[in-house]
Computed example of a mutant assay.
Amino acid sequence: MGIIYLASLLGVSACMLLLDARFRLFFWRDWRAAAIVVIVGVLFLLAWDVVGIVTGVFEMGASPGMTGILIAHELPIEEPVFLAFLVLCTMVIFTGAVRIIERRSDRADQAGQHEIDGADR
């Protein structure tokens, strides 16, 4: 029972990677750059967590769905997995939004070009 949260995080991460693979948005576009972004993002957010833990702002809550395994004081093993999912999800949404905006802009430019071409005739 204590692995439900970790398994859920891994499952939704796999789904996000499948979406990424389908549209080649982040890892499947440039896996080296994506790996660097995820690692730097997770390290930054873990540092943020550590500061919050040291200052007493963050505490680990008790949940029967968690493993109970700590990698540091008040820092469960699920936290870096969650942070990696958070970074991955953010980057897939961001790169997907950029692609949508670019395609809409390209279509608008093409439509405008067709209007100009038609006016010249």
Score class of each variant (00 low, 15 high):
I100L: 15
V92Y: 06
E59H: 14
T95I: 01
L83Q: 03
F82S: 08
C89K: 05
L43V: 06
L83T: 00
R104C: 14
I69W: 13
A7C: 09
V42A: 02
L18I: 07
L46E: 15
E79M: 10
E115T: 09
H73S: 11
L17I: 10
A119E: 08
M16V: 15
L70F: 09
G96S: 06
I69T: 04
I100D: 08
I101W: 09
G61R: 13
I100S: 05
A72P: 05
A47Y: 08
D20Y: 06
Q110A: 15
G11F: 14
M1I: 10
A47P: 03
A7N: 14
D20W: 11
I77Y: 01
F82W: 10
A33K: 15
V98G: 04
F94C: 13
M60R: 15
D20Q: 11
I3D: 10
L46A: 09
C89E: 12
I3K: 05
M91K: 07
A47I: 05
F82M: 12
L75H: 04
A35W: 03
V98W: 13
R121T: 04
L43M: 13
I69H: 06
F94H: 14
E115C: 10
D120E: 12
C89N: 14
L9Y: 09
L86I: 05
V12H: 02
G52S: 03
F82R: 09
S105Y: 06
G112M: 02
R29G: 06
L70V: 04
R24P: 07
C15F: 15
I116C: 00
P64C: 06
R24M: 07
D109P: 00
A7E: 04
G96R: 06
S63G: 10
G56T: 00
I71T: 07
W31G: 00
W31D: 03
V40Y: 02
L46S: 09
I71V: 13
I39K: 00
G2S: 08
M1N: 13
D49K: 00
V81H: 06
E74Y: 01
R121I: 11
V12Q: 03
R104P: 01
G56S: 02
G118T: 15
R24D: 07
G52V: 01
D120V: 15
A21N: 04
A84I: 05
L70R: 13
F85W: 15
I93P: 02
E115R: 14
V57N: 04
P76K: 05
L10R: 05
A111T: 11
G65K: 13
D117V: 11
S8C: 08
S8P: 00
P80F: 07
D120N: 08
H114D: 11
V54P: 00
M66N: 13
R29F: 13
G96N: 08
L10Y: 05
A14R: 04
M91N: 13
I39P: 00
Q110G: 05
A62M: 07
I77E: 02
D20C: 07
G96E: 08
L88S: 10
D20F: 09
D49N: 03
I71K: 05
L43Q: 04
S63L: 04
M66F: 11
L9R: 04
F23Q: 11
F23N: 10
L70Q: 13
